[in-house]
Amino acid sequence: MRIFKTKTPDSLFTSSSKIVELAKAFAATLTDDQHRDLNQHYSLRNAVNWSNLPQNLLGRRRRRGLRVGTLSGKQWTALNALLSAATGSSKNNGYDEIQQILNADDHLRDNGGGSDYGRENFYVSFLGAPSDYGKWELQFGGHHLAVANTYINGALVGATPSFRGIEPFSTFEYNGVNNQPQQQAQSAFEALLTSFDDGQLAVARLSDKYSDVLLGPGKDWAFPNTVTGIRGSELRVSQRALLLAAIKTYVSSVDDENAARILAGYEGELDSTYVGYSCSKSMSKARDYIRIDGPSVWIEFSMRCGIIFSDPHPHAVWRDKNTDYGGTAP
């Protein structure tokens, strides 16, 4: 399969108006049939219809939207320009992470995974019409990836649920580059846990074991009623900085301007944000698990057993208790 790439633009376009412009420019490259697949009604039912599984394993909950395997080179270029503007610009985050996850799925396809894997099986959809007025959502995802940016009246009002996963966890070469963006998040979590003394580790240790994230697809608003772990107010200044750095690895999935705004909000809630973990501090072995649970932020990182390759690989989800799906709730 041909792979169409575009580099991140030198000038960052973070305004909703520019994103709307690029969304319309992408749509303008499509055929009538592709348009029908791309444009979906904005509803909570459509918004919650995402997953981290390959499309052919989803049964009745298959993704709706435009299968990107139908795109031409020109259409890929237009889609990449939109994704680049709507997501973060830093290395191993945002647009760069998306490209590496697509490379990973091609790598799985080519190394035993077969036709269920590969970037051609990812989907893009517009829930509602891209506009500076009203509500619409840019939805892009496939195996190990869910992007859900919701805009209301020209403002990004929600960038969650946001799912990231990748297999293998070891660095692999594909598409001319070395890939493994989530080693960055793993290192941030390991640095945080390694900074804890024995007393802090005892408070942070969770009683349960976890084989995956709790709040994956289909688990909307299922946040635990009881907060567990060590509270941010009990951390030293240097440890709070490590906690914020770990949060940043997920918030940086959205465009830089909005990421800074969201991160500042989470920073203001650090005193009441809890860290809990299970199994080892390395966050590199099967069943290693960590969560960040704040008044707003919820992040989980879980090491899963390998599927195509033998080594464990990460699943991670970022949710926001107030702005999941742009604040749309049942």
Rank of each mutant, 00 (worst) to 15 (best):
T226N: 05
D288F: 06
L243Q: 10
V157A: 05
T194P: 00
R67H: 00
L156A: 03
T226G: 01
M283K: 06
V297P: 06
G113V: 07
S89D: 11
E97V: 00
K24A: 01
Q182V: 02
A202Q: 13
R109P: 05
Q200D: 04
D320Y: 07
L83H: 07
L145F: 09
H144W: 02
P168I: 06
A159M: 13
L108D: 08
R236F: 01
R231Y: 07
Y42G: 00
N92G: 01
I307V: 15
E137W: 00
C305F: 11
Y174P: 00
S207I: 13
N111R: 10
A155Y: 11
E267Y: 04
F4S: 13
A246H: 01
Q99F: 00
A78R: 03
L270I: 15
W298L: 01
L38T: 01
S233M: 10
G268T: 09
P295H: 04
R287H: 02
N179L: 04
A148K: 09
Y210C: 05
D110Q: 13
S72K: 14
K219N: 15
A185I: 04
P54I: 07
N121G: 08
G294H: 10
D208S: 12
V251R: 10
G199E: 14
T228E: 14
G326N: 04
A23L: 04
L44G: 05
R304Q: 14
L71T: 00
D255K: 08
Y174K: 09
S238A: 15
T77D: 13
S90G: 06
R61I: 10
N93F: 04
S252T: 03
N52K: 03
D132W: 03
L57V: 11
S302T: 07
L145T: 09
L201W: 06
F140Q: 04
D293P: 08
F13D: 15
K219R: 15
R231C: 14
A155G: 02
V251H: 11
R231M: 13
R319L: 02
G65H: 03
G94Q: 02
S131T: 01
R60T: 14
G176V: 00
L83K: 06
V237D: 03
Y277M: 09
L243E: 09
G134E: 05
A260R: 12
R287M: 00
